[in-house]
Write a protein that binds this DNA or RNA. Structure first.
Length: 470
DNA sequence: CTATGGCACGGATT
DNA sequence: AATCCGTGCCATAG
């Protein structure tokens, strides 16, 4: 008995820390799930009715005053206003995906992709193959790409690889074409193949570009490709245009503009922002309003009735109920702590990076998480967790990861881009070192090259070729 | 000979 | 403790 009590209490303190840390690193959406499940499983937890600001109708987390309306009317402070903004209409990512699914040409109903594909190819399969196909189709990611390797599939299902390949091939040819490929590259090739049969306008260089020059292709490094294959740049750009207009590296996605980002898989594309930054009333002369989105619309608290109920509970159920109570108050506490940390963090970061938020990447100050942690007197890892996996919507509607606020070189890269964009003649890397130092940035020649690579900017001699080509 | 990319090392950051 | 980033040195291409 005594044993049980101590083991029941001890972990609580460590649990507190652990839980706070996990909550901190969660995105709004994940937090919503966490709260939902906690709310459902723990009777001691309750959500009090929503409160709205009487004037602006904004949902409030605190019973107190509305953080926006209570501002002095003629506020002109440089300091941002940071507050939690509860969102009942917060769209979870799932909903978001479902919505886009409706627009997809290949989903007549709410049918799942695997089922949809299987239906198409089922007639051509014998029962064994069908099982194999089903297995393969359950290992697709949301982009329609295969998440396992053929070898693994073969090992797991005890089917020879050649057979697996056959079935995979059938899947790839089904609609959406290319689904079930292992890489975007493979998907593109299959699509190209199919298109060739019907269209005769497929650029000759397209296949080679995908097969041998995928890397350069995704970086827009056309002159390099032209050089590699020893063909005119024109041909390459034509092929690239064709590819970006007609092919989809991620078969399950509705569309894909141009070949900019997908160089590395899982590029964080459209994120639900976890934090919104805007001008008050969209007026650029007003201070910045920072909303940290909370996925719920009321205030979470321990149910007072539950405390009462415990006193009257029978001795057998009492310990259980008490446990629930502990858990509930712990959860509320952790949540508050998370929110508090986020508020302080955002307050500090936004006022530090005001120029960046207002005027763009050029003005980003290189700040490290460590610095902020010292100022806030919390552990570095706390900041790391708070920053991780969060997305911010800036006043110009761009959604960027919160970690971008801590990018040490973004400002230099931005200036670099600017210089190159307006350059009369292609500057060499060492020229660029000069020009950058005039702007107050001292970096090594080698580093300029690295930045160029990051930004996908071609080396000088190739930029020259590009200019001529146009 | 000049301009770049690759590799690898050390120090900072997470 | 693991990872990222800036840099120097060297090989290679033009």
């Amino acid at each position: 008995m005594l044993q049980r009590q101590t083991t029941g209490l001890r972990p609580l303190t460590t649990a507190h820390l652990a839980q706070t840390m996990t909550l901190l690193s969660l995105t709004t959406e994940e937090l919503q799930q966490e709260i939902d499940s906690e709310l459902a499983s723990n009777p001691a937890l309750e959500m009090v009715e929503e409160r709205r600001c009487p004037t602006c109708h904004r949902l409030l987390t605190d019973p107190g005053k509305c953080p926006v309306c209570s501002l002095p009317a003629n506020l002109n402070s440089e300091e941002p206003v940071v507050f939690l903004s509860p969102r009942e209409e917060f769209i979870s990512r799932k909903d978001y995906v479902d919505n886009t699914m409706d627009d997809e040409p290949f989903a007549p109903e709410v049918e799942e992709l695997p089922a949809y594909v299987l239906k198409q190819i089922a007639p051509d399969l014998d029962p064994n193959q069908r099982a194999l196909a089903a297995y393969l189709l359950t290992h697709l990611d949301e982009d329609g790409l295969l998440t396992t390797t053929l070898i693994e599939v073969s090992r797991y299902t005890h089917v020879p690889i050649s057979e697996v390949e056959k079935v995979k091939r059938l899947i790839q040819l089904a609609d959406p074409v290319g689904v079930g490929s292992s890489t975007p590259q493979e998907a593109l090739l299959v699509q190209l193949e199919v298109l060739k049969e019907t269209h005769d306008t497929v650029p000759a260089a397209a296949e080679r570009c995908i097969r041998e020059g995928m890397d350069q292709l995704s970086h827009h490094q056309y002159p390099e490709l032209a050089h590699k294959f020893d063909v005119p740049v024109k041909q390459i750009t034509l092929a690239a245009q064709f590819i970006s207009e007609n092919l989809y590296p991620f078969p399950a996605r509705a569309h894909w503009g141009d070949m900019r980002q997908p160089a590395h898989e899982e590029t964080q594309v459209y994120h639900q922002p976890d934090i919104l930054i805007n001008y008050l009333n969209d007026d650029p002369t007003k201070p910045l309003i920072v909303e940290i989105i909370m996925p719920i619309s009321g205030t979470l608290q321990v149910n007072p009735m539950f405390k009462q109920a415990i006193k009257e509970a029978s001795p057998e159920t009492k310990p259980d109920l008490k446990g629930d109570l502990e858990k509930a108050s712990l959860f509320v506490k952790c949540l508050q702590q998370r929110n508090h940390t986020m508020e302080r963090l955002l307050m500090r970061v936004v006022s530090l990076q005001r120029e960046f938020i207002l005027h763009g990447e050029k003005y980003l100050k290189p700040v490290t998480r460590a610095q902020i942690s010292r100022e806030m007197e919390v552990h570095e890892s706390t900041i790391s967790r708070a920053v991780a996996n969060k997305a911010v919507q800036l006043p110009n509607r761009r959604i960027v990861p919160l970690s971008e606020f801590f990018d040490r070189s973004l400002n230099i890269r931005s200036v670099l881009k600017e210089i190159i964009e307006g350059e009369p003649k292609p500057y060499s890397d060492s020229d660029l070192v000069e020009l950058l130092s005039e702007n107050g940035f001292n970096v090594a020649r080698r580093t300029v090259a690295k930045y160029r690579a990051i930004e996908g900017i071609l080396p000088a001699h190739l930029r020259k070729a590009m200019a001529k080509g146009k």
